[in-house]
């Protein structure tokens, strides 16, 4: 019984995450529009876009290989696999043992690998440019990401999300500078990984500094829809990860309906807050020059490393 229940919660959670992802993207852009005194296209617009794209015919370049054709499926699948591992509503879901945080990051890296290959497949200058930049910046983001995971796992002695969440729930709330540093680093990395301002502009489709969109230029129809959807899932995944790691309060411990519904409400509320903050940040900031991005990422690394040092300096020594 309880196994069945937790499996159904797992399924519910995965489907919810995937279905909400476009809404979240719409929510962020609507918030941004309101902040910029525009009306915006509405929260549902990404859904409408996806529906339209799914119905359209696919046009592909003559010499595109199977990499280009199957990359959208691989990207979407890997992202969705990662998304179903992250506990959003309940800890200790059946799939949560499948991958710990590091494996989760690696699944996303797999998606990125194929995305970049697809960018190279057509042989346009834009595709190669996007692939080159995406791989470069994600490589620089990786050590900072790992370092902040390191800081977080120091307390819990674990990289399993469930154990980490339980650890945070079970320790008394107190000010831990190291966690604050790790949070700051993680937020910076999350912005970079999702191609948000100040690294990349998600709303641009044709400018010389674009990264993510440059790789997608040749895609159309359902392939484009899958790629877009995958990046929306990635955004909500990172948001959930931040919520899980830093403010997990409210997540359900068992698969009872009341707890799960409550956890769902909490989760949505936290996501909404996070996305409003994201919209605020994106409105308030300008995009960085391309070659200032490494500095931004190294700042994230320094922050995470400071978290590590302060952990030993201030928290262990006591």
């Amino acid at each position: 019984m309880s196994v069945m229940a937790s499996i159904s919660v797992q399924l519910f959670q995965a489907v919810l995450l995937v279905l909400i992802a476009p809404l979240a993207a719409g929510f962020v852009s609507t918030c941004k529009a309101r902040l910029q005194n525009r009306r915006g296209a509405g929260v549902l617009q990404p859904w409408r876009d996806l529906r339209k794209l799914f119905a359209k015919e696919v046009v592909m370049a003559e010499h595109a290989s199977w990499i280009f054709r199957f990359a959208p499926y691989i990207v979407f699948t890997a992202t969705m696999m990662a998304a179903s591992v992250v506990p959003a509503l309940m800890v200790d879901t059946p799939l949560s043992l499948t991958a710990d945080v590091i494996a989760l990051v690696a699944l996303l890296a797999l998606a990125r690998f194929f995305l970049a290959l697809a960018g190279m497949d057509i042989g346009t200058a834009f595709g190669g440019m996007g692939a080159s930049r995406e791989m470069t910046f994600s490589a620089l983001a990786e050590p900072a990401m790992l370092m902040s995971i390191f800081v977080l796992s120091l307390g819990a002695h674990s990289t399993n999300l469930t154990t980490m969440i339980n650890h945070t729930l079970n320790t008394p709330v107190m000010m831990q500078p190291s966690i604050a540093f790790a949070l700051a680093a993680m937020v910076m990395i999350a912005m970079a990984e999702n191609g948000r301002i100040p690294i990349d502009n998600p709303n641009t489709h044709l400018e010389l500094t674009m990264i993510h969109e440059a790789m997608l230029l040749e895609y159309s129809g359902r392939h484009l829809a899958l790629m877009e959807w995958a990046s929306q899932i990635k955004l909500i995944l990172f948001a959930t990860l931040l919520v899980d790691l830093f403010v997990p309060w409210g997540i359900a411990a068992h698969a009872d309906p009341g707890g799960v519904v409550l956890a769902c409400v909490f989760w949505l509320f936290k996501l909404a807050v996070l996305f409003v903050l994201l919209a605020l940040a994106e409105t308030g900031m300008a995009k960085l020059r391309l070659f200032e991005v490494p500095e931004y990422l190294s700042a994230a690394f320094v922050l995470a490393f400071l978290g590590l040092i302060t952990h030993y300096m201030l928290e262990v020594a006591v």
């Binding site: 000010m175 500078p177 190291s178 604050a180 540093f181 922050l303 400071l306 302060t310 201030l314």
Partner: peptide
């Protein structure tokens, strides 16, 4: 105080 020290380092 620990938090302030960390901020100082920052």
């Amino acid at each position: 105080i620990d938090g302030l020290a960390a901020l100082m380092l920052l």
